[in-house]
Design a protein around this nucleic acid. Structure first.
Length: 285
DNA sequence: CTATGAACCTGACAGC
DNA sequence: TGCTGTCAGGTTCATA
């Protein structure tokens, strides 16, 4: 679900409402939510109790709270995960997986996840400032240290389609199905455009569109089609009203009026304008 | 290295 | 009403 803008909305909420507080009790209601924590739920809870969250960080779609122990509480929301800040008396959510209380007795942090593709773990921080499970992820396009030139070079070395490359979190992180389709629409690129034909200027233009659509979405609180994608206070963003391609099958293209088409791709969907984004002569999937 | 499909889950929705 | 099939913002692993 959530892609970079939605995860960043959550990070900001954690920074405001959780950073600086000390964990007290941690109740794991569904062990699957901490399956990436190899030592099990009890160890997970034990490594958090009494530890202070120093800040809230993000790379791509991964979130983490560095702790005063040198570890970090790492989370990925998967398709349906939410991190909510709730009063203690708020009724339990149907899909409440982990509840965190704090020594200050204030609002709880709750990990709620319908489909349980998301997960939490406590891991050591590595020397380069990220937790172990985040080390294989590339920097994201909103990271000041993202290397545009290196991205263009790496992209050209690939032998695949442009959308597949955008979704590869080891090449560029934070881009998911929505923002890939939106950035490609803005760039007038078909999803099967061969990466080896992407010149340096073309890569720069695409990157600029990725950043533009993500920044605009972030300014509107992210994209929510339903109550699944919300900030820590349960509020939805409204960038869905600004989508030009994703989910717009049959709707007229905002540029040329041609109906937006949907095609199956990578076990999911691609939405594009068949006129503005014509299929290349030598497509790559 | 690249591509494909399946797996991991629950729920909403369309159609019969 | 209820059943079946399809689809959903993601990641990972096994197989060609």
């Amino acid at each position: 679900m959530p892609e970079l803008p939605e995860v960043e909305v959550v990070r900001r909420g954690l920074s405001t409402w959780v950073s600086g507080r000390t964990f007290d009790a941690v109740d794991v209601a569904h062990p699957r939510a901490v399956r990436r924590h190899g030592a099990g739920p009890a160890d997970f809870a034990g490594r958090l109790a009494g530890r202070r969250a120093e800040s809230a960080e993000r790379r791509g779609k991964y979130l983490w709270l560095p702790l005063d122990s040198g570890d970090a509480l790492v989370g990925h929301l998967g398709m349906s995960g939410q991190l909510l800040v709730q009063p203690a008396q708020a009724p339990d959510e149907t899909h409440l997986r982990v509840r965190f209380t704090f020594t200050d007795g204030g609002r709880q942090l709750r990990f709620v996840d319908q489909r349980t593709f998301g997960g939490l773990a406590v891991e050591p921080m590595l020397a380069d400032g990220v937790p172990a499970s985040v080390a294989h992820i590339a920097r994201d396009p909103l990271d000041p240290q993202f290397d545009d030139t290196a991205f263009a070079v790496a992209l050209r070395r690939r032998r695949t389609g442009i959308k597949r490359a955008l979704l590869d979190q080891t090449l560029i992180s934070g881009v998911g199905n929505i923002y890939a389709d939106e950035a490609l629409w803005r760039s007038r690129l078909h999803y099967a455009r061969a990466t080896e034909t992407m010149t340096k200027p073309a890569a720069a233009l695409l990157l600029a569109q990725v950043r533009a659509v993500m920044s605009q979405a972030l300014a509107q609180g992210g994209t929510s089609f339903d109550a699944l994608y919300v900030n820590v206070n349960g509020e939805s963003g409204y960038f869905d009203r600004s989508l030009d391609a994703y989910g717009q099958v049959g709707e007229p293209c905002a540029r040329c009026g041609t109906p937006i088409r949907r095609e199956a791709f990578m076990n999911r969907s691609s939405f594009f304008c068949p006129r503005c984004q014509p299929r290349p002569r030598a497509p790559r999937l």
